[in-house]
Design a protein around this nucleic acid. Structure first.
Length: 839
DNA sequence: GGGGACGATC
């Protein structure tokens, strides 16, 4: 390391963490894991890396890694630490987030998103480049944080030299301490002013409650008000009501601002702009952790939020509005009182608050685990059930994740392997030629070649699957563009005041049968304009066309990243434009359980596992709904919506989902014209009939039944036009026997069909299921046994009829010289019954 | 006709 540590590291006197820095240093020196608990403003985020530096860490032995849950935070934290150490960013202190790496060989403190650290695990299993890892904001319990906490836990014995510092809000440091075998907890006080909590249980609707609370706070003194709501619609309703509120005093005048993540950047920025008039900011959960609204003295908390939940039963993501936890409510409360005393009005009863759960469920118990399981399997972490999670996910969600990975062909599970080879040990032939052997019920799933590729692609497994298939179908270029678009936030903006104008601007790119094709159109437009326009003119164009410039850039950055990784994986980019069908077939490889069949009566779609979904109104397919669709995203809110969709041919799903489809057959029957047994095939994928009545050759489906029907119809009943000698000879023998029945006026002389069936069944080859099969078999067979299939009269005439003979019933009645033919018929009741002389 | 919280990546 060529960088040198500044001789003296100083700590801002006013920060609470500064008072405890010797205790913290001592704890880190004496323990492998230390928990530091403290509220925002305690200074832990910026000062901990400095304490570690002073302990001599981050120097010869390795780097001090410092993770943040958000990219912006990673950058600003690095900037602050660099500034406090009096160095330039990118030298002693650096940071890395996706697409941006500002760290160097001199870097001693590397701030990064937790996603970057996880990505590094794939290449550096023991995280050897770090001698210290600080996991900041661990209380947020994101999927990444929980995975890191588990990973670090099992890493500690292998890396006794590694120091780990977990920082958390003061809410529950003991949980982390317990996870790390009673690691010491150091609590650092925050710098907070007291916040008075007032409970104002709703008596009317929510909007009324909000306006009442705002009115109450307007009289409490100067300062801005932050209102927490569950979503965009609620924000709009409240904004409308608040704008109608006419303050009685001039000093009570206020402006209303909205704040949520999907808001255009310009609208978001208004919140941070300096202002004169008092403000009411209506916000979603973005304002709880991600964004800090300055100057807030008052908070109004509806106590509700949309929480993402994954249903292991329906395998669908849901976004229900739920009461928030105590921890979350306190976090909201804490958003005032950072600069002075504050007041927080909760629009629910105190008893309601008391009855709420302490903490929000960590993401790992609420989310689709496919990606985590894929990463863990790629890392060879073994049984998911034995991984040291702070809070293990439910077995059913683990199963659901495994099932999804099986759907996209990323893994072959032990279960499946056993089923396909019922005898002997479970063994699966892998696509790359390896053989995966699994012995027991808890055996870990085995990664396929596709799975290993997906583990390297920095996108959701479904999207990665599309990319792999895009390579196979010669349309990698297009599929990467689509997959990149699906993994970022929609670059199209729809400001509340100009929704119609925005929709009109975006409609130019729409394709009536595919939202994915619409994305490709948009991509083409953007590329073309960038080529022709100056960079500033392009930015202006983005504004007028309701496109978010930064998200367009992110889309393009991700496109290049995916191209690069694909290249490393040996996936080749196409130069020539691909057909729309190739692109959509590739997308479908990732969306097999997201297909739907139109229900004409109900105006919605029958989806996988009996679910029903509707096309989201913003989709180009909302108006004219095709018979079959696939949807990139299925999320249940007011109902289950398919957000980004395209029409598909159901047959595509049959070939791509060959490992998943179920086939049933009905009405096997003999077809005289074809000389074969046919049946109707029904093909379903997750219960969706993708083929309803396809006529198929049943001989290939069920040989025994088809052979049976062939013998009965073609040979026994004679429903066959053929020149085979035995066939005609047998017909004659039968005719003779039947004639005998007529003349003797007795039934039951001719043996029944079962006897004839048995005769053929014993002789005809086992593979003969149609006339064609018969012909080729008989061609060989008759050489050795030409009489094999010939009836004798003995065979076709019952034993009881032995004493009868056709001779006893003459054909002609002679009367003098005249010979008149006799016709026998045994049909009591009919006019022609008996013997008829034809004169 | 209808409309969805927030983050992150090899």
């Amino acid at each position: 390391m060529s960088a040198t540590l500044p001789m003296q590291i100083s700590y801002p006197e006013q920060l609470p963490v500064t008072q405890r820095r010797h205790d913290i240093a001592e704890a880190i020196r004496d323990h492998q894991v230390v928990i530091v608990a403290g509220e925002t403003g305690s200074g832990k985020t910026t000062q901990l890396p400095k304490i570690c530096l002073e302990l001599g860490r981050g120097q010869e032995g390795g780097v001090i890694g410092h993770t943040q849950p958000r990219r912006i935070a990673a950058r600003t934290v690095a900037e602050r630490i660099a500034a406090e150490l009096g160095t330039e960013l990118g030298q002693l202190v650096g940071y890395q987030v996706r697409f941006t790496d500002r760290s160097s060989a001199q870097t001693m403190v590397k701030v990064m998103t937790d996603g970057i650290l996880l990505a590094e695990v794939q290449r550096d299993r023991d995280l050897r480049r770090y001698d210290t890892i600080i996991i900041d904001e661990a209380h947020e319990r994101s999927l990444n944080i929980d995975f890191i906490l588990g990973y670090v836990k099992q890493l500690l014995p292998r890396r006794p030299d590694l120091k780990v510092v977990i920082t958390s809000a003061t809410i529950d440091p003991r949980r982390f301490s317990a996870h790390f075998d009673d690691a010491p907890v150091i609590e650092v006080s925050g710098r907070m002013y007291p916040v008075e909590v007032r409970y104002r249980e709703l008596t009317d609707d929510q909007t009324q409650g909000i306006t009442d609370a705002v009115r109450e706070l307007l009289t409490a003194g100067p300062g801005d008000i932050l209102v927490f709501l569950s979503g965009e619609r609620e924000i709009r309703d409240a904004a409308d009501a608040l704008r109608r509120l006419r303050p009685t005093r001039v000093s009570d005048a206020f402006e209303v601002l909205s704040l949520y993540a999907r808001l255009s950047s310009a609208e978001q920025h208004r919140v941070f702009a300096p202002h004169q008039r008092r403000r009411v900011v209506l916000a979603t959960n973005v304002a709880e952790t991600s964004l800090t609204v300055p100057g807030i003295r008052y908070v109004v908390d509806t106590g509700l939020a949309r929480i993402s939940r994954f249903s292991a039963r329906t395998k669908v993501q849901r976004l229900p509005i739920e009461p928030i936890s105590k921890a979350s409510a306190d976090q909201r409360k804490g958003r005032c009182g950072r600069q002075a005393d504050g007041i927080c009005i909760r629009l629910y009863a105190e008893e309601d608050f008391d009855a709420r759960p302490e903490f929000t469920d960590p993401e790992i118990v609420r989310t689709n685990l496919a990606s985590v399981i894929l990463q863990m399997t790629a890392l060879g972490l073994g049984d998911i059930g034995r991984f040291p999670f702070v809070e293990p996910p439910d077995t059913r969600s683990v199963q659901a994740g495994i099932q999804l990975l099986e759907e996209i062909g990323a893994i072959t599970s032990a279960r499946r392997a056993r089923r396909s080879k019922p005898r002997g040990r479970a063994e699966t032939r892998m696509a790359d030629g390896r053989t995966a052997v699994s012995s027991g019920k808890n055996a870990t799933p085995a990664l396929t070649t596709i799975g290993r590729q997906l583990a390297q692609l920095p996108v959701d497994p479904r999207l990665g699957r599309m990319i792999v298939e895009g390579h196979r179908n010669g349309c990698l270029r297009e599929v990467i563009i689509v997959a990149a678009a699906l993994s970022i936030q929609d670059p199209r903006e729809r400001p509340s005041e100009q929704q119609d104008a925005a929709d009109a601007a975006h409609r130019r790119f729409a394709d009536p049968t595919s939202d994915f094709a619409g994305l490709l159109n948009l991509w083409g437009f953007v590329k073309e304009q960038q080529k022709e326009l100056s960079s500033s003119a392009f930015r202006r164009l983005c504004k007028t066309d309701f496109l978010n410039y930064l998200r367009i850039r992110e889309w393009q950055d991700l496109d290049s990243q995916l191209r690069q990784v694909s290249k490393q994986l040996g996936l080749s980019l196409t130069k020539t434009p691909a057909s729309a069908e190739a692109v959509h077939r590739s997308l479908l490889a990732g969306l097999l359980s997201h297909i739907g069949m139109k229900d004409v009566d109900k105006r919605d779609y029958l989806g996988a596992r009996g679910s029903r979904f509707a096309i989201f109104p913003g989709s180009a397919l909302a108006k004219k709904q095709p018979p079959f669709v696939m949807s990139a995203e299925l999320v249940e809110t007011s109902r289950l919506w398919g957000r980004v969709n395209a029409a598909i041919e159901p047959e595509w799903a049959e070939s791509i989902g060959a490992h998943l489809v179920k086939r049933t057959y009905s009405e096997p029957h003999w077809e005289y014209k074809r000389g074969a047994v046919m049946a109707f095939e029904k093909v379903t994928l997750y219960g969706i009939p993708i083929v309803s009545e396809r006529k198929v050759d049943y001989g290939r489906i069920d040989r025994a039944v088809a052979r049976d029907l062939f013998i009965r119809h073609a040979l026994v009943q004679g429903e066959w036009r053929t020149h085979h000698r035995f066939f005609h000879a047998n017909q004659e023998v039968l005719a003779e026997a039947e004639e005998l029945e007529q003349r003797a006026r007795r039934r039951g002389i001719v043996v029944d069909d079962e006897t004839l069936f048995d005769f053929y069944d014993e002789r005809v080859g086992p593979d003969v299921v149609s006339t064609a099969h018969f012909d080729s078999w008989w061609k060989q067979q008759r050489r050795t046994t030409p009489q094999l299939l010939e009836f004798s009269l003995d065979l076709v005439v019952q034993d009881a009829a032995d004493d009868l003979s056709v001779q006893e019933f003459p054909d002609v009645w002679r009367h003098g010289d005249a010979a008149m033919p006799l016709v026998y018929e045994f049909d009591p009741g009919a006019e022609s019954d008996g013997v008829t002389v034809e004169i």
